[in-house]
């Protein structure tokens, strides 16, 4: 079977780390590169953390990491806006510079619990790499998997629109309809760079949004993660450690997750959906736009659900639900298979 060519765009990040592990170890993927972006932590750290994960999976000879944009397109330009002033849990505005993260909530940390990487990122910047790689590809050849703010992808499309037909589809972790986290209206990845998603949504590419509505259905409990830990490989232990870290973080802010002793693993679900589409449930073809008006709803993904004679044109697939059992089984299967392949 022909492998699916993907580029991961990440803000690593604990759930990004798991998404990267799965993208590197699931043999159905041909991972062409990892582009890091500002998000959960500043880009210097998301780049470094991505390198850590590559080393953890022993993929340093095959997979290269590129450093992307340090700032969102425009959200931090508004000096009085929340992106540029404060955010609950942070003592400093975006970008989350090293050391500014409140230490009591540890869904993400500045540094992943892995050794300082020996390898370095490539000298080329992420956007230049994206443009070069896509322009050299056939039409519809490459799938993009952005699981952080969409800054790199949006700027690449603006700098060279000839890349757009090269993209097979874009599987995005981001947004929320009934579930949000960074503001009453917005999910973090989109809240960081609302304009970037709006640019991508207007590109005409085939786009699927894997929002919080779906990822919160796909949580993993600490108990389940112990089964993954038992596999015993470095990547499996990393995932188990990160699930535990996330569960501890979520327990401080989410009563439901506290009771379950678990946490959603957002970004990994987008990777799963590429090889097992049925993990996403209630996927609806919708008209979706992002609020960029800089008010209370800045960064909200708005789904047009009005019943109209002339409906607004549909521009993306939106997953309202997901199947937790398929998701957990996929992670275990891939990690088991990787273990067998290494002859352990």
């Amino acid at each position: 079977m022909e492998k699916r060519k993907i580029i991961m765009d990440v803000d690593t990040g604990s759930d990004d780390a798991m998404a990267l592990v799965m993208a590197m170890l699931d043999e159905r993927f041909d991972l062409l590169g990892i582009t890091a972006v500002n998000g959960n932590v500043e880009v210097k750290l998301t780049t470094m953390n991505s390198l850590r994960v590559v080393e953890c999976c022993d993929k340093q000879d095959e997979v290269k990491v590129y450093k992307g944009c340090d700032l969102p397109i425009a959200s931090t330009l508004m000096p009085w806006g929340p992106q540029a002033t404060q955010m609950p849990g942070f003592t400093n505005p975006l970008p989350h510079r090293e050391g500014t993260r409140e230490q009591s909530i540890q869904v993400h940390t500045d540094h992943l619990p892995l050794p300082v990487p020996k390898i370095k990122e490539e000298p080329e910047s992420a956007v230049v790499f994206l443009i070069k790689t896509l322009l050299a590809a056939e039409d519809g050849e490459i799938t993009l998997v952005p699981v952080g703010p969409l800054t790199n992808i949006a700027i690449a499309m603006r700098a060279d629109p000839r890349i757009i037909p090269k993209i097979k589809e874009i599987m995005i972790m981001g947004g929320g309809h009934d579930v949000n986290n960074s503001s009453p209206a917005a999910e973090f990845n989109i809240w960081v760079d609302p304009e970037a998603l709006e640019i991508v949504l207007q590109s005409g590419c085939k786009i699927t949004l894997v929002p919080l509505d779906a990822t919160h259905k796909c949580f993993m409990t600490v108990e389940e993660s112990e089964r993954i830990r038992a596999i015993g490989t470095k990547p499996a232990i990393l995932i188990a450690d990160l699930v535990k870290q996330r569960a501890t973080g979520y327990a401080q802010m989410d009563a439901e997750m506290k009771a379950l002793n678990g946490a959603p693993l957002h970004d990994a679900l987008a990777v799963c959906a590429l090889v097992i589409p049925e993990v996403l449930k209630n996927v609806v073809h919708v008209n979706c736009h992002v609020d960029i008006s800089k008010g209370i709803a800045y960064g909200q993904t708005i789904i047009d659900q009005r019943i109209r004679v002339n409906p607004t044109p549909k521009n993306c697939y939106f997953a309202f639900d997901a199947d937790k059992d398929i998701f957990v089984k996929w992670m275990i299967d891939v990690l088991e298979k990787d273990k067998a392949k290494r002859g352990l």
Binding site: I73, S125, V127, V128, I155
Partner: peptide, 12 residues
């Protein structure tokens, strides 16, 4: 200044 803004964003 669109081009230069993107240049500085992409490669500071």
């Amino acid at each position: 200044l669109t081009n230069l803004a993107h240049v500085f964003q992409v490669e500071p």
